[in-house]
Design a protein around this nucleic acid. Structure first.
Lengths: 333, 333
DNA sequence: ATAAATTGCTTAAACGTTAAAGCAAAATTA
DNA sequence: TAATTTTGCTTTAACGTTTAAGCAATTTAT
């Protein structure tokens, strides 16, 4: 049998006082409780001696607050999200909050399941990387007045708190940079998705070309479905290089980059000599070979810290103000 | 204001019955509660209509069970552990358990902090990847009769539940395999650590050499400290290749492999032609280039599922039996 | 026909915490 | 000196759930 932890009452009995008094001291509210100085001291000592730990359930029940938040990402085993999780967890822990993570697998039904599961655990709020087509779930949260913040992605037609990279700007700047360098004909490989982060990256590409008086050739815009097979990407790259005669390719996500680089390698092309590569996000393979790839680095830490700050503010002060924060991405070279 | 969720009492009032009755039905214990068939039906309907969700705090307070477990890993942003987390989370969720993750950063004090933090959240038990020198923390858990399972690593001098790969056997088999293939002189790069998984991998190497009548040359055993700089590994590899004249190198962890491959690449060596590589665990770089590397693949899924099964058994039945499970690793080629 | 068992429900208490209300005794004010 | 305020505490109730105990009314057994 696991031994029972000490309760307020245990301390109270030990000192022959009421539990209320102990409660005030434990919560550092002795002023409010008008607890005598000596008594406060005694209580503190006894609490330490008996190794008192507040009972989280009793507190939660009484206060209707769990001091825990739900984090919903696409897949926690994906390094990008694992990184986010780490930062958010550390930040939460500093504020004595606990994080419970769930993976949506980019499927709205799964996201809903996870939301419900975490709600049933009485989390105080959510940080959510929303999946495509999860507008309904988000609207439900809004209707229920559940505190939450979207990260990494948002929906143009839903007004709610969000924090992310300015994908349009990052993309625009990166593409412009490459054009300035030398690229005259750039292809892009992106996801066939309604998610605004993907759309903005594409928009940035298109605008940058236009503003630099380059023709936007629909042939050079390759859209890949999620869960495509790797061969699709190989075909895209091959077609861009051979038929499209591009001198550079922009891969708009980490996964696309990884598979794209593989295709380029398999096609026997030399990066920088034969072709320039622009990549959203960093990955291990780029680092490993010091590939001369221009990367857009997202400020993950800032994003996570800001989103958690917004969420805590929502939970603790519940102001009606909606904030949509966008941070600038950085170019790696 | 977030709207209040419906309680047992709400349902009870709606039907003009007592909360007790509703409780029995909600928990599918109508037999025990001797609830009439029709009433049970009515209650179920009303519960559904009002979208009743049990209050987790009240339950926890009453039952002294949170249906949540703590998972302590070295670093959740490390893909190996992120993978584990994903599997454990899915498995836990199936059983209506919640997982709270903490990173120890391979430091015993940090591990203790995380343990305390999670304990204060009333988790029912732990799955722990223990850091080096955390024996005291583990002994405290034992003394407190806290349910827990160690994964990936254990301490030879502490008797407690554990689940991991049979590191000795996996290492022994892999090294033997390479010897059988052609390797006559194998170097090993491992961590300078007391953790039994590392020690066992080294033991496996030594035993395999001995049993194949090869000399164990201390010069060929390179021990790296945690948080070494990458240059150390480069030096080790270089020394093995140039002074040691090895024809193969065994990297005993994922990280070592990654840095080792880089060194080999930088030294201009061709894997398989100039040197054979044996690696514990898989990594993205190996996959990317289809490097002809012999890998020991750990059965992560089995390990995670077993550890969670053992933990649940401990929590729900608390049998005195201690189990130390080891699964066989697989060779990739 | 009567005692015993079963059915269908209720009441009360408890889990550990917090918050409001209350109550003497001591200190301050007029 | 008497009225008022402050100090240092206690009591009570509540959060939502579960469990033991209890109590009629009905059914079954003898």
């Amino acid at each position: 049998m696991k031994k029972k932890q000490t309760s307020l009452k245990d301390i109270a009995n030990e000192l022959g006082v009421s539990a209320t008094l102990v409660s005030y001291v434990i919560n550092n509210r002795e002023k409010e409780g008008r607890v005598g100085k000596e008594m406060a001291e005694k209580i503190r000592k006894t609490a330490k001696r008996l190794n008192y730990q507040p009972n989280h359930f009793a507190r939660g029940l009484k206060n209707q607050k769990s001091r825990s938040i739900g984090l919903i990402v696409a897949d926690i085993s994906n390094p990008f999200f694992a990184n986010m999780a780490r930062i958010i967890e550390d930040e939460a822990s500093k504020n004595n909050y606990t994080v419970i993570i769930g993976s949506s697998d980019e499927r709205p039904e799964k996201m809903e399941r996870v939301l419900n599961f975490l709600s049933s655990r009485q989390v105080d709020g959510f940080i959510i990387v929303p999946t495509e087509n999860s507008q309904d779930q988000i609207r439900t949260l809004l209707a229920d007045k559940t505190p939450f913040v979207l990260v990494d992605r948002r929906f143009d037609d839903i007004s709610c708190n969000s924090v992310m990279t300015d994908n349009f700007l990052a993309s625009y700047k990166a593409v412009t940079h490459l054009i300035k360098k030398k690229s005259r004909r750039m292809g892009i490989v992106t996801y066939d998705s309604d998610l605004n982060n993907h759309k903005d990256r594409l928009k940035g590409y298109v605008e940058a070309l236009k503003n630099n008086k380059l023709r936007v050739d629909q042939q050079l815009i390759k859209r890949i479905r999620y869960n495509q097979n790797d061969n699709d990407i190989y075909k895209c790259v091959k077609s861009l290089v051979e038929d499209g005669k591009v001198d550079s390719i922009f891969f708009t996500t980490n996964t696309l980059t990884l598979k794209g680089l593989k295709a380029i390698h398999d096609l026997g092309l030399k990066i920088s000599e034969d072709i320039e590569i622009l990549a959203f996000d960093n990955n291990e393979v780029i680092n490993f070979y010091n590939y001369p790839v221009t990367q857009v680095i997202q400020p993950i830490e800032r994003i996570c810290k800001e989103s958690i700050a917004v969420l805590f503010d929502l939970i603790e002060n519940s102001p009606g103000k909606i904030s949509n924060t966008m941070f600038e991405g950085k170019l790696s070279r």
